[in-house]
Amino acid sequence: MTRIVAPLVFGVLLLAAWEIGVVIGEVPSYIMPRPSEIASALWANAGDLAAALAVTLQVTVAALALAAMSGALIAIGLSQSQLAERVFFPYAIFLQVTPIVTIAPFVIIWVENIFIVLLILAWMAAIFPVISNTLLGLKSVDQNLKDLFRLYGATRWQTVRRLMIPSALPYFLGGLRIAGGLALIGTVVAEMVAGTSGTRSGLASRLVEASYRLELAVALACFALLSAAGLGLYVVLDAVSRRLLRHWHESAAAT
């Protein structure tokens, strides 16, 4: 109980202090709106913001799914050959260390469809932890079990499917939880750089737009929704991970 209540109480106290501080200090709302103003901005623009959130989440979830599948396949490919790993893994690192903001302008020029642009950028942000974690998992297979598979005449594909992939699953899921947050960050950054507008604009574009107009209550409402979306994504991925590992992995043991 206290695990949920304690942080909630702290959050409420923080918001109350904010509200009171702004009122006492007579800070104008275009510099620092009160939490109650943010809440009413959220309420007043609910339909609009919900649509924007849906756009952002669509990109995020699609990019995450793509990163999960392609990342896992790439990791399996790399695990099958030391040469392949030596050749390709540095490029995976390259993807990781290059800030997406610097790649965005090129992608925007080369790709016309804005949804695809956002998807590519969010995918690039999310894929590395999936590849690197899954690869680590694939290489951490119990050596004796591997010997046993050999002794029993398992084919290469049987060994991959029935030994390496299950062994790597906890690592893959750990990577996926990190990738979820990164996919959202990638989507937000891409939206801000691409400057999407109009009916198909996401929550991050709405945030930028509102801040240009000094509608800080709306901008902060967008911010709150994005945070909530990130948290929600994590909770979902964590639940999926626990569900898949519940019988056998220490990380999912009932506590």
């Binding site: 004796n144 079990l145 010997d147 084919t155 029935r162 299950p166 019988h247 056998w248």
Partner: peptide, 28 residues
């Protein structure tokens, strides 16, 4: 046809007892 037993049980933690025991059969 050879059975091998290691110092550690060396079981697949993700599979139940029946699936672990059936492993050598499944490849045949």
């Amino acid at each position: 046809d050879t059975g091998f037993v290691f110092q550690d049980a060396t079981l697949m933690p993700w599979a139940n007892v029946a699936a672990n025991v059936a492993l050598p059969l499944s490849f045949k």
